[in-house]
Design a binder for these strands. Sequence first.
DNA 1: GTTGGGGGGCACTTTACCTCA
DNA 2: GATGAGGTAAAGTGCCCCCCA
Length: 227
Amino acid sequence: MAVSPSSISRLELTISMPGFSPPPPPFPSSDLDINQLPSGTGEEEWITAGVEDEEESTNGGPPRKKLRLSKEQSRLLEESFRQHHTLNPRQKEALALQLKLRPRQVEVWFQNRRARSKLKQTEMECEYLKRWFGSLTEQNRRLQREVEELRALKVGPPTVMSPHSCEPLPASTLTMCPSCERVTTTGLDKGSTKTTTTAVATPTTAATLSSKVGTPALQSRQSSAAC
DNA sequence: GTTGGGGGGCACTTTACCTCA
DNA sequence: GATGAGGTAAAGTGCCCCCCA
């Protein structure tokens, strides 16, 4: 699959989920000037030097030694990656010159860096989907339980006792508050704007309706709870 | 409009080195 | 200190897509 530069720039998609904030970007911002040569080249960290052994390790030479980038080189590459995830040939050449690397090495580094970035993103997405799945599973379980309990109640329509008159309320007067998932009565208290919480439309709604309607426990909740 | 070559990116893999038990 | 397993990053390979002549 080939990815155009425009889609590369979309690599860092973000996912927002309630209660789940993604980790901060992996590269803390720096005031590094990318056009400056590294102060310390850190060449002591090189297993194999960069440009010098250009044609080594090919056709019958000694086994290739692994290049280890110095901290400064890595820092510059990361900084450059933060600015653009792909390089045009001139940028690649300039960066290679600056880092005393071959352009091919810069190119490889960017390729691997993009792969790591994508892998990280995929892992984050996987984590997010796992959490989402767990949340949906839990919600599904609750709803199924509720359905079963409502089915058990199907003998008669669910009734909710008015907190004021202790009379059963018509279902048409019940509305669900989307934010707190409570069932409220509306349009009854004409003299007051207060909305009275009557029953809880949470996973325990059906259980509440079936077992606690009209009981002192619910009535005390009815009078105290507010949306 | 079709075709072939070149360049660049990506996925997958190999390899060398590092860390840690 | 030697050693093997596992992890990480640089590099190799093959394929695909895009552009251009």
